[in-house]
């Protein structure tokens, strides 16, 4: 598949596949730790998504530029060091921009290093594709990751505190589901989203099968 892709030009599809069809969280199940840990508010989810996207784009870009110079035997170690460098940059940048967000995200900014999604993209895509295509792909995957974080963050904040981005949504009589902000809530909300997508997919498959059967009967 990789050999075939090399001839293909950069298309919107490169971007969209990362965003939706090969969504890193909902489809590939990569990088789950930050997805569950920092999505108790929408703001944290957004900050984490942007930080991860930045690291992803920069590090895969650099891997792509250096792909002819990195010896095959030590490639994973080289990628990890490149990623760790950019994570250090983000770590200090967020500390400078907003100490509040820095404290809320805690160790999870530094733990971006251990996000298997970034290493996965560097190994599977950036190490054999030219720079332009790698950047588009990284932007797509990053956008998909941010989208997934926002999906979880909004649901958890809405149910757990009755707010979105700190703005009250429900009337005063609403009793917040505190469990949604606690660790079990993260697992349950993500499971809920996966169930929803699996259900949609099954409906589509059933409909496609039914349509196929109908045309077969027509003949």
């Amino acid at each position: 598949m990789a050999a075939k892709r090399e001839q293909e030009p950069i298309t919107m599809d490169t971007f969209l596949s990362g965003l939706w069809r090969e969504n890193p969280v909902f489809v590939m199940l990569l990088g789950m730790c930050p997805v569950l840990a920092v999505t108790n508010t929408t703001e944290n989810a957004l900050a984490m998504g942007l930080a991860t996207t930045f690291v992803l784009v920069c590090s895969t870009g650099l891997v792509s530029i250096l792909r002819d110079f990195i010896p095959k035997e030590v490639r994973i170690a080289s990628y990890i060091v490149i990623i760790a460098t950019f994570v250090t940059v983000v770590d200090y940048a967020i500390q400078a921009i907003s100490l509040e967000i820095y404290n809320a995200l805690g160790a999870f900014i530094q733990l971006i290093v251990a996000n298997c999604m970034i290493l996965g993209r560097a190994e599977a895509f950036a190490s054999r594709q030219p720079l332009g295509k790698t950047l588009v792909d990284a932007l797509g995957v990053g956008a998909g990751f941010t989208l997934a974080l926002l999906c979880l963050g909004t649901v958890r904040e809405l149910l757990g505190a009755g707010e979105i981005l700190g703005i009250q949504v429900f009337a005063d009589g609403f009793e917040p589901w505190v469990i949604m902000l606690l660790p079990p809530g993260g697992f349950f909300v993500l499971a809920g989203w996966l169930l929803l997508f699996a259900w949609i997919k099954e409906r589509q498959n059933q409909r496609a099968a039914a349509a196929k059967e109908a045309t077969a009967d027509g003949r």
């Binding site: 079990p184 809530g185 697992f187 349950f188 993500l190 499971a191 169930l195 699996a198």
Partner: peptide, 12 residues
């Protein structure tokens, strides 16, 4: 995955 996550939630 959905089932595993629910199990993890219950354990949590």
């Amino acid at each position: 995955a959905a089932m595993s996550l629910m199990l993890a939630g219950v354990l949590s």
